[in-house]
């Protein structure tokens, strides 16, 4: 990638980082590194997110580093930002087209949509409500199962009592 070229990093939820590649001798103290810088043998010279300083620039020149990537602030219109969010939500909805409504993955889809809208609190609320609803349904299902088991046990007991009872009235009739 040549100097002056801008690029974006992969980022969830429609957010992104805009970066520009510049020659080391164009670097200015106070800029923020968009990528880590490593020597050819893998030794790390500076981490992503580090502030560029005069000392770092001198080190990079000594280490024969030609170009670095620095973060750039993106100037976008509200419409552009909304467009990115809408596209992300469309993408998520399309990707989940074959997932049935009862699947656990619907919770993943909805969480991604809330995060795309920067609505983390709503994601938390939705998931908490979902958990509470499922806990209640599980409780009700357990109560129903226990009631059914109790009914079956009672029926079984009544049935065996009826078999064990002696035929008293029948013998009296016979005597007459």
């Amino acid at each position: 990638m040549g100097t002056g070229e801008r690029f974006r990093g992969a980022h969830m939820g429609g957010g992104f980082l805009l970066a520009k590649r510049i020659s080391v001798d164009q670097a200015v103290a106070g800029q923020v590194l968009a990528e880590q810088i490593a020597r050819h043998d893998g030794v790390l010279l500076a981490s992503q997110g580090s502030l560029v300083s005069e000392g770092l620039i001198r080190t990079l020149i000594r280490q024969n580093v030609d170009t670095i990537a620095i973060e750039e602030e993106e100037k976008r219109s509200d419409a552009e930002i909304m467009g990115v969010h809408d596209r992300e939500i469309e993408r998520v909805d399309a990707a989940f087209a074959r997932i049935p409504e009862e699947s656990v993955l619907i919770a993943l889809r909805k969480t991604l949509v809330y995060l795309a809208d920067k609505e983390r609190d709503k994601a938390l609320e939705y998931l908490a409500a979902l958990e509470a609803k499922e806990a209640k349904e599980a409780e009700e299902a357990l109560a129903a199962k226990e009631a059914e088991e109790a009914r079956e046990a009672a029926d079984a007991e009544n049935g065996s009592e009826a078999e064990a009872a002696p035929p008293a009235r029948a013998s009296r009739r016979k005597k007459k």
């Binding site: 993943l108 969480t111 991604l112 995060l115 983390r120 994601a123 998931l127 908490a128 958990e131 499922e134």
Partner: peptide, 8 residues
């Protein structure tokens, strides 16, 4: 399902 948020 609530684990999806912290994982993401």
């Amino acid at each position: 399902k609530t684990d999806f948020l912290p994982i993401l």
